[in-house]
Design a protein around this nucleic acid. Structure first.
Lengths: 193, 193
DNA sequence: TATAATTATTAAAATAGTTTATTTTCTGTC
DNA sequence: GACAGAAAATAAACTATTTTAATAATTATA
């Protein structure tokens, strides 16, 4: 059951005692989300820190020309939020959307603030969660500025082997910052080699 | 004096009381760094969280071909570390180097761990520091995948107006992920327009 | 102040990536 | 199992960016 998934995922960071688990469990709300349904829409305020238990999501931004740009894919047992919008209560500039039917667990900001005060461990947990994501993001920037599209594509499928097979190529292209046509070209090339 | 700079910068996140300021001040070490001197070298373990009081630094990675790629510039009153290396005590994959004669304040990992346990505020402070940097980094990824080199250059000088005038164009090009020659072309073009 | 060394600019040719348009393949649904 | 709609592949022409190489401008140092 998805709450256990969340507890064990957090337990990997720091083991929680019974009362901490209680506190956390009581403040988490489970939701079932359809494919293509939004978890967060642009210009809304991001009210939750979200744990993905089943399915996967994408976080993307729409630019002035209406083109979508994928910032992140979020697989099972991973956390997603829009930090700026969540903490500063400013309108979100991104969408978060389920790519497959999903089960998510959400914590509201007041509840999270409560948890931070109830045990210092929670502060630490959410610091570690964002630090992990930060390291990942920095890795990505590095690839973006130092690798060709082909190298980035190979790195992507190497880093997310299971997930990448579930993601349509259009979406992967948008994540890599190239057109789907050029991704096709790259894939064709790789087959020849 | 640089310790006051650090205290006031942290005070902007959460005000500290006297004893917290004491605890922090006692665990911070000031160092003067020459231009081009390293604060962290590749394959070393990052031992400190570093606050830049004067001067500015760059964090960069050297790829297989020996080319340097700038990941970040760190100006006065900002923090820098290599999260992965610092927390997991793994060899750093990046260099951090002073671009101008600098004054820095450093906290070692044991001292930071101590601070985390001494007051929950410190956990929160370093969570906020990394969250801010995270938001900045995400903005950058977005630009990288959705903007042309010219747009990225304009965004860069708009975001860091004072700092960008102190950074050589070669370094800016490396940050933008383009060649210095192409940056020249862009700058020429912008003058004409 | 002159000279060396680094940094910035320019230009031409080569490569990487986009655009537009068409065709093929895949997927879901009745 | 046939059909509609979405996703993927192909190709040609176009644009962005790199590479190489040479020159000009700036900065550091004897």
């Amino acid at each position: 059951m998805s709450l256990n998934q969340l507890l064990s995922s957090i337990g990997n960071i720091i083991p929680l005692n019974k009362s901490e688990k209680e506190e956390l469990s009581q403040r988490v709300v489970e939701r079932k989300i359809k494919r293509k349904q939004f978890i967060l829409q642009e210009s809304d305020i991001c009210k939750h820190y979200t744990f993905v238990a089943e399915g996967y999501c994408r976080k993307y931004k729409v630019d002035d020309k209406g083109t979508e740009h994928n910032l992140q894919f979020i697989a099972e047992n991973d956390w997603i939020t829009e930090i700026n919008s969540f903490y500063f209560e400013t309108p979100s500039r991104v969408f978060i959307e389920a790519m497959e039917p999903a089960v998510i667990l959400q914590i509201s900001k007041p509840d999270l603030i409560y948890l931070y005060s109830s045990s210092p461990k929670f502060n630490r947990i959410f610091r570690v969660i964002i630090e992990n994501r930060f390291a990942e993001l920095e890795e990505r920037v590095l690839h973006n500025i130092s690798s060709t599209a082909e190298e980035r594509y190979l790195a992507f499928i190497r880093t997310y082997p299971q997930l990448s097979s579930r993601i349509p190529n259009t979406q992967i292209a948008s994540y890599l910052g190239i057109t789907p046509e050029f991704l096709s070209k790259i894939r064709k090339n790789l087959k020849l080699v």
